[in-house]
């Protein structure tokens, strides 16, 4: 079920909580909503492990301070990680000492314990998904967008941007694309350079590592 586009939603995610700040919410209303959530859900948030999900929103210094002042410190919640699709914001949050992206589950820090990351939208240039597990994108990955996954990557749309599956060196990872138009795909420690003239260009493909090479296979269901 799609989430409301103009609210802050608090969801249970097993043992953790996830606070989703809808992208349709104006910047002014974000501040107001943070105060509302902090007041109404203080008992729930106190001591809880919380993931803050800002979707495609830019998280800058002002928003960071607002979240800390209005939500994190007053409620006493335990901030697990920040999620934003904006690449520059991810770098900013990391430089500020925060964890970015989906946190590992309580079963351990092993990558396989990570749930797949599902994204029902397209990634624009400058946006980035980074996840310690499999990534499924139901949308396009435009030129200039990036997807980094510890596991496999599935793009149910057009791929023109950069995908790196198995980014910690897993050559067994695969990339599955519905409409292949990317000039480069990385799997594990291999980099595959794609040919615009190939028969599979613009068609569904499965990309894997075969020995030293990155192999692209057309497929149909």
């Amino acid at each position: 079920m799609p989430l409301p586009e103009d609210e802050i939603i608090l969801k249970s995610n097993g043992s953790d909580l996830r606070l989703v700040v809808a992208e349709g919410l104006s910047r002014q209303r974000v501040d107001d909503e943070l105060v509302r959530v902090a007041e109404e859900a203080e008992n729930v948030l106190k001591g809880s492990r919380v993931v803050l999900d800002f979707q495609g929103r830019v998280v800058d210094e002002a928003l960071l301070q607002s979240v800390l002042n209005r939500l994190v410190w007053p409620t006493g919640m335990r901030l697990l990680s920040w999620i934003t699709l904006d690449g520059a914001s991810q770098n900013f949050l990391r430089r500020s000492g925060f964890t970015v992206g989906e946190p590992p589950t309580e079963r351990g820090n092993r990558p396989k314990a990570c749930r797949p990351f599902l994204l029902f939208r397209s990634l624009r240039s400058g946006q980035r998904v980074e996840h310690e597990g499999d990534v499924v994108i139901v949308g396009h990955v435009n030129d200039g967008a990036e997807v980094f996954a510890l596991g496999h990557v599935f793009v149910w749309g057009r791929l023109q941007g950069l995908v790196h599956a198995g980014y910690e060196g897993d050559d067994g990872a695969r990339v599955v694309v519905a409409h292949m138009e990317a000039l480069q795909v990385r799997i594990g420690r291999r980099v595959g350079y794609m040919d615009r003239g190939a028969a599979w260009w613009g068609h569904p493909v499965v990309i894997s590592v075969d020995g030293e090479s990155v192999l692209v296979d057309a497929f149909s269901l």
Binding site: V58, D86, G126
Partner: peptide, 10 residues
């Protein structure tokens, strides 16, 4: 495309 993403975010 990059600018549109930023405008959406703003």
């Amino acid at each position: 495309d990059r600018i549109i993403g930023m405008l959406e975010s703003l």
